[in-house]
Design a protein around this nucleic acid. Structure first.
Lengths: 216, 216
DNA sequence: CTTATACGATACGATGGAGTTCCGGATATC
DNA sequence: GATATCCGGAACTCCATCGTATCGTATAAG
């Protein structure tokens, strides 16, 4: 599963692993600690977050954290990267037969909640992202790409069905939803509820997808 | 002009202003210092910014800054609030006779540049905004509202001309552009050029504005 | 049962930035 | 010209946090 790739200790599947004595590291704590880190990150932001906060939240000692991650930046990087896993599965997306049906079916309470969590984490690291390409790549991969990928699938299906024109820009369509939601949460500071998302689908995404081709 | 409202010294128009002796405070330094603060804020974010950086950038001493603002948060608050002034004038908006003409006319190099500057400042304070309502209000007022207000004008004119239906949601339309631009800069980390904005107008905003009424 | 390590907890040193104070020099009022 | 305040600059104190070290306990290998 390789949830925490940062640590230097031996992997289970390493060929000639040193026969280390003594108590073994409790691997089940890794996801708990990373989850605590994400909570603190979402609540206080990157700079507000301290290692002691994360340790306290995970009911662990600071030494335990530093035994597993070399520094605060590496812990954050790992925590962000691990948000990728918990995303929606591309193979189990709704397939209702219509574009609107698929888009509306993706608006589910847990999905919205997980999206809002990701946005709060994103808000906590945005200022950091400009100066840390590695963190920027991890955030891209874990926070924005999965959502775009899911949207891509339903738009491509709509094109295959002939429901929308084949020459619309799928990449642009994919970003409308995430962009409107992110702007509402981070800039307007208004809640994202089901009504808002359905409104965005009907008033913006579908008109853009269905538009008669040719600008001007 | 009341650029810096935070300071406690006497206003010029105060009725019985104490006849203060000694050298007078050089008011022309205020905007220079606030501008330096915005630069540092955009480059390093709220937590990365230090008072010494701002002082150095403005070629001023730390004491000068603390003489005018009580603390770092108040300096930042004032700096953000003062970005409101430098925005586009609602009375001198383009009026080309068509919605698309007005929207395209608003896409000018200096406008884009100023918008990108504001977005970088926003990125630097996003994590702070969640915990400081006063800063959140200032950012709302100075960074997001002016842009929405300009858009409101051209959409309302389009409705008056009968170019678009009167029952479209103007508030939603106003946010599409800012949302797509903010998402592209902050999340996708791609450049915002003229082509992208024109594309957004033609592929998203105009289809949403022109759509045949009634969802589903 | 011995040994080596992980565990939570806590004490410790080093670092950096917020905010204060003082300096010599400039400038305004009286 | 005396006085009071501003200026840029720099030294200073204070405090929070990073990261390390240590302690007593728990646990796994030999």
């Amino acid at each position: 599963m390789a949830i925490a790739m940062t640590q230097l200790d031996l992997d289970v599947d390493h060929p000639q692993a040193k026969p280390r004595l003594g108590r073994k590291r409790d691997q089940t704590r890794d996801p708990e600690i990373l989850d605590a880190a994400l909570e603190v990150l979402a609540e206080t932001g990157y700079d507000g977050m301290t290692i002691e906060m994360v340790a306290a939240r995970a009911k662990a000692g600071k030494a335990t954290l530093y035994r597993r991650w070399a520094s605060k930046p590496e812990l954050v990087l790992d925590a962000v990267a691990c948000m990728k896993a918990r995303d929606l599965d591309l193979d189990s997306l709704p397939d209702t037969g219509t574009l609107r049906g698929d888009l509306v079916a993706m608006v589910k309470a847990p999905t919205i909640q997980e999206g809002e969590r990701k946005l709060k984490v994103m808000a906590g690291i945005v200022s950091m992202i400009a100066r840390d390409p590695e963190l920027a790549a991890a955030a891209q991969e874990a926070l924005v790409e999965p959502r775009a990928a899911a949207n891509r699938v339903v738009f491509r299906r709509a094109i295959e069905r002939g429901e929308i024109s084949a020459d619309v820009d799928v990449e642009t369509l994919c970003t409308i939803g995430p962009a409107m939601i992110a702007y509402r949460v981070l800039m307007l500071r208004k809640p994202v509820d089901r009504a808002f998302i359905i409104g965005t689908i009907d008033q913006i995404i579908l008109p853009a997808a269905m538009r008669a081709t040719g600008p001007t």
